[in-house]
Nucleic acid binder design. Structure first.
Lengths: 335, 335
DNA sequence: TTTAATTACGTAAACGTTTTCGCGTACCTA
DNA sequence: TAGGTACGCGAAAACGTTTACGTAATTAAA
């Protein structure tokens, strides 16, 4: 399998110093083109690639970023990762993945473990279990960090988000235009700005149309599918809403199931609409009206911002990047 | 923000040598419990964590594995990653993600870039574009590697797969029992063992029931959704199959759409069945009969095997781990 | 012709660990 | 008391890079 091929080996074979080899490999101006070419061809011939650990140790650059998210198995996040990966490839960076499973302690443990020089920067979408601003206020001082979708506000860090308030407002108006007056809200991410904005958009749209919001029509998400199902069934049974506005994808399955079990027809008895990046929304029975976030683009933008920071480029003084979501009307709100 | 806290710093504050600190941190038998405790408490106090690059450079262990897969935004792979991550956490390992997008050149480039000590091992599900056994035959000699789902055969490497042949046989029989005699096959992964096994299961089931397989009833997957849609529509129009057996999830949307556009009722005019890990299969219109692979478990098993190798544990002489898929009968094959 | 500047390369230190080897002390055995 | 054996710890090398600095040779400027 041949001895390990490193800079020393290249230097020996070419009868030059390891410093020269290193500089040649890094295309330094100090080295003549002639020497560079000798080094490059031999390097290619021997399949040389620099040892990342040594390089990182000396230069304090890892060529690696971390993505800290609640869960990979989620349409939004997996698409975000695709966007992130695409940009990372362009910059020759490697991508580490960490899943918090909405656990803030795990989240802290992961990010802390990244402060010792394992990565050059972090992309994160924070967990919904808690809103601990202090921790992140400290963190952003220690390492380049970009938030996407689930962000902390008021910190000196780039945030990539979507127009949650506006699109929720618009979606609520769509339901109202379809004749709904008792619009229930399936509430997710209530601790986070995204969740609050969506809810505010919903509330304000109701108010704008002279409809009173009601505590009774709100179901809060729990990490327990059966529990959510029961809550929705209770909601449907007791308070007879004429629409369900789901603020997160996780409510879709229990919501559809609840309607079926209660023998309620969508959209005749109750209309349905949800934030979702489900690719099969149009195949559901009935097809689901969705608010889909540009997940892929969000990942791309977040990664781009991070690399700007890492390369000390100016950030166009824009700390907040806001992308537009898309409301796609389908049968579930049929009107 | 305090100076960088490293072993040297700990050693100075405790008035002992850096060697002692290092050994204490690694719980070496050479160090007294008393000294260890002094080191541990100070380390915790100062939030010390070892520099990964230095540690890796010296010890040749990275505590990192790579996952090389076609795409994250796929229910099967994102679930696999969850399983992998869970095990990696238990072992204190970090997880790098690389997406090949079914491109074998990208696949080679990634894996080659991992051979210089960036990771301790690789988990991979290979791309479907080509079956290049030579490359992997060499690769497995150079680095611990475990295949999952999309594997190369005949190599000295652990493979984690599912019972593709058996479950495809069983699914085909299910269609036959529902009265189908012209069962079309939507063919994916044709270059890979998984794809071949599924197809063989389909063919053998037909044969076992005295049904002749027909070339005309086969549609091969292309990475072009519109093209696949047209192919399926042509299939439905020309050859009037009474069932569609889809061997990969990617055919579901075009298949449903094709039926709608051709005004064919599922399951009355044509029955449908697909390999899929779609969580919303039961909400589709009509709900879809699926073969779901235990993606999460596959990830777990693959990771476990890799860590066994990394820890030089015996592999129970079992190089092939085969998990069972599940056939869930729903309305789309209604009978 | 002398001096300054530039070019092309080498020496050696440094990054923060891990690990081999050796040394001294204390204890035990004969 | 002499010899052996643990035990607890330290000195120093090593891992493969990058880089500050030095130097010799060549070229440009004076």
């Amino acid at each position: 399998m041949g001895e390990a091929v490193n800079i020393k080996r290249l230097a020996q074979e070419l009868n030059i110093s390891i410093a020269t080899v290193s500089k040649a490999l890094n295309d330094s101006y100090e080295i003549s083109l002639k020497t560079k070419n000798r080094v490059w061809t031999l390097a290619k011939e021997l399949n040389y690639t620099p040892n990342p650990a040594a390089s990182n140790l000396r230069s304090n650059k890892t060529k690696t970023i971390a993505v800290v998210i609640p869960c990979v198995a989620n349409n939004f996040f997996s698409l975000s990762i695709m966007g992130i990966e695409e940009i990372a490839r362009q910059y020759g960076y490697h991508v580490l993945i960490y899943q918090t499973h909405e656990n803030i302690e795990a989240e802290k443990a992961f990010t802390n473990s990244l402060l010792n020089g394992r990565v050059d920067g972090i992309l994160t979408s924070v967990s919904s279990s808690e809103y601990n601003s202090e921790y992140y206020a400290n963190l952003v001082k220690k390492i380049p960090l970009v938030f996407f979708d689930r962000v902390y506000e008021g910190l000196d860090a780039v945030k990539v988000t979507t127009d949650d308030y506006e699109i929720a407002f618009q979606a609520t108006e769509h339901l109202i235009e379809c004749g709904c007056t008792k619009i229930a809200y399936l509430f997710g991410l209530e601790n986070l700005p995204a969740g609050k904005s969506r809810f505010a958009g919903y509330c304000d749209a109701l108010k704008a149309h002279g409809i009173a919001a009601s505590e009774q029509l709100i179901v809060k998400y729990q990490d327990d599918e059966e529990f959510n199902l029961q809550q929705i069934k209770e909601l449907l049974g007791k308070y007879k809403p004429d629409a369900l506005f789901s603020s997160i994808e996780e409510f879709i399955i229990p919501a559809y199931c609840a309607c079926r079990e209660m023998n309620l027809q969508i959209p005749n008895d109750v209309k349905m609409l949800s934030f979702s990046n489900l690719s099969t929304a149009k195949l559901l029975s009935p097809s689901l009206t969705t608010i889909s976030q540009p997940a892929f683009e969000i990942g791309r933008e977040a990664a781009k911002s991070l690399f700007k920071i890492l390369n000390n480029k100016q950030l166009d003084d824009e700390q907040n990047i806001i992308l537009k979501s898309v409301l796609t009307k389908r049968e579930s709100t049929g009107c």
